[in-house]
């Protein structure tokens, strides 16, 4: 049986990374973009500018879109934010935060169970407003 593993103890084996906990609402898909490290930069830009144009006018009314990036994707997310701030001239807010993720360790031996461990990771949330920067 598995036991709770001590913090920061090294565990050998293959690591399976799980996504952070995320709450889902259908309407959020109309104003949020999640950036991965494999997301192409230009297509993310295009997606964001398209989303800004088509922001929902009815409830829930929003005047900004949200772009999330975590870990390795932070730099890419920030460069998207800067693009909107300096090239397009939109008002941009940058929030930093910490996200908790689950790691699963598989030692390759099918007789042993896998082990779960929590890990904290930094992330950014960017608000790009429709209005121009004042």
């Amino acid at each position: 049986m598995t036991e709770r593993i001590q913090k920061n103890e090294r565990i050998e084996g293959k690591i399976i990374k799980h996504n952070p906990s995320k709450q889902y609402k259908y309407s959020t898909t109309e104003y949020t973009i999640n950036i991965q490290s494999k997301t192409p930069y230009v297509s993310a830009l295009k997606r964001a500018s398209k989303m800004l144009k088509l922001l929902p006018k009815k409830q829930p009314k929003k005047d900004y879109i949200i772009i999330n990036g975590m870990g390795k994707a932070i730099s890419k997310t920030l460069s998207i934010a800067l693009h909107f701030q300096y090239v397009e001239g939109n008002k941009v807010e940058i929030l930093t935060k910490t996200v908790e993720v689950l790691d699963e360790f598989d030692d390759g031996n099918e007789d042993n169970d896998t082990v779960l461990r929590k890990r904290k990771i930094s992330a950014v949330e960017i608000h790009i407003f429709k209005s121009a920067y004042d």
Binding site: M1, T2, E3, R4, S21, Q23, E100, V101, L116, K118
Partner: peptide, 19 residues
């Protein structure tokens, strides 16, 4: 209502379920 369960640590829950 999602607000009731806002402060729950989902990862702790998942570890508990597995163990």
């Amino acid at each position: 209502d999602s607000k009731i369960y806002e402060n729950i640590d989902i990862n702790d829950l998942l570890i508990d379920i597995k163990l």
